[in-house]
Amino acid sequence: MTTTVHRFAAASRMEWIKLRTLRSTWWTLAVTVAGATGIGVAVGANSKDASADLTNNVLAGVAPGLLLVGVLGVLTMTGEYSSGMIRATLAAVPDRPLLLTAKATVFGLVTLVLGEVTAFVAFLAGRAALHGRLTAPGLGQPGVLRAVVLSGAGIALMGLFGLGLGAIVRHSAAALATYVGVVFVAGQLLLAVAPAAVRWVPPAIVGDSLGVSRTASGDLSPWAGPAVLCGYAAVALGAGAWTLTRRDG
């Protein structure tokens, strides 16, 4: 047990060094927070209906994070294959499930911090931009803090989903196309053929379940939504671990 813990700690340190030295990590952080601010302000300034869920309105700023952090998750995995670094990584950590666990742990913690910063920035920026005649939501009001925190967690879970897809597909272009298709395009297709099923699509879960202070009829509850996203991420990472053990580096 001690040996496994030591190997996991060493693998995690290695993954942290690789992640923080990637320029794409810092660009994603900057663009995600900037996008959250801009969209939060734009949506807040254009909110007119006092009866609407204003918390949900201003949390629209988390939307870019679902794409950007998911893409970062894909590239964090596939980039090792395209650069050839995966050979050195596997030489250092031959235990592939352990390697993916360490990578997912480090990436998940980093993107959770990023997601929470994004959600709080979107909320505060959008709240400040609301028209003076509207009562701005406060973090102490029922369901508001929960909506902000879960929205940030949703971003991290989508990043882990992207990481799992990257481990399964390995090729950047194909994995990115799969991520965009599954996460975004599928929702539009379902909207046309099976509208009731749209609530199971990740962007709808984040927008209609996680990022709301009050849940509308027919949507997943604020706690069922995160459970479904956790399931998606777990399945992708589990399949990724299985794939890594069945292929040569």
Rank of each mutant, 00 (worst) to 15 (best):
M1F: 02
T2F: 10
T3W: 05
T4R: 12
V5C: 09
H6Q: 07
R7S: 03
F8Y: 07
A11K: 02
M14N: 10
L19W: 12
L19Q: 15
L22T: 11
R23C: 04
S24K: 06
T28Q: 06
A30K: 00
V33D: 01
G35C: 06
A36R: 11
A36H: 10
A36K: 12
T37R: 04
G38E: 10
G38C: 08
G38D: 11
I39R: 03
I39L: 11
G40K: 05
V41G: 03
A42P: 08
G44P: 03
A45L: 10
A45Q: 09
S47F: 08
S47N: 10
K48Q: 13
A52K: 10
N56K: 14
L59A: 13
A60E: 07
V62P: 03
V62K: 05
P64M: 07
G65W: 02
L66H: 15
V71C: 09
G73I: 14
L75V: 15
T76F: 03
T76C: 00
T78E: 08
G79E: 14
G79H: 14
S83W: 09
S83A: 07
G84N: 14
G84K: 13
R87S: 15
A88L: 12
T89A: 04
T89I: 05
L90K: 05
A92S: 12
A92Q: 03
P94V: 15
D95N: 12
L98H: 00
K103T: 14
A104N: 01
A104I: 01
T105K: 12
L112Q: 04
G115S: 06
T118H: 13
T118G: 15
T118D: 15
A119Q: 02
F120T: 01
L124H: 13
L124N: 08
A125W: 06
A128E: 13
A129G: 09
L130K: 08
H131E: 11
H131F: 00
R133P: 00
T135G: 02
T135R: 01
T135A: 00
L139Y: 04
L139F: 07
G140T: 08
G143R: 03
G143H: 07
G143D: 04
A147W: 01
L150P: 03
G152Q: 09
G152S: 07
A153I: 11
A156I: 03
M158S: 10
M158H: 13
F161I: 08
G162I: 13
G166W: 02
I168R: 04
H171P: 00
H171A: 12
H171F: 11
A173T: 15
A174W: 15
A175F: 08
L176C: 06
A177C: 13
V183L: 03
A186K: 00
L191E: 11
V193E: 02
V193K: 02
A196T: 07
P202K: 05
I205H: 11
G207D: 05
D208P: 00
L210T: 02
R214A: 14
T215S: 15
S217C: 09
S217L: 12
G218N: 10
G225D: 07
A227L: 15
V228R: 01
C230S: 13
C230R: 08
Y232A: 06
A233F: 04
A241V: 15
T243D: 12
T245E: 09
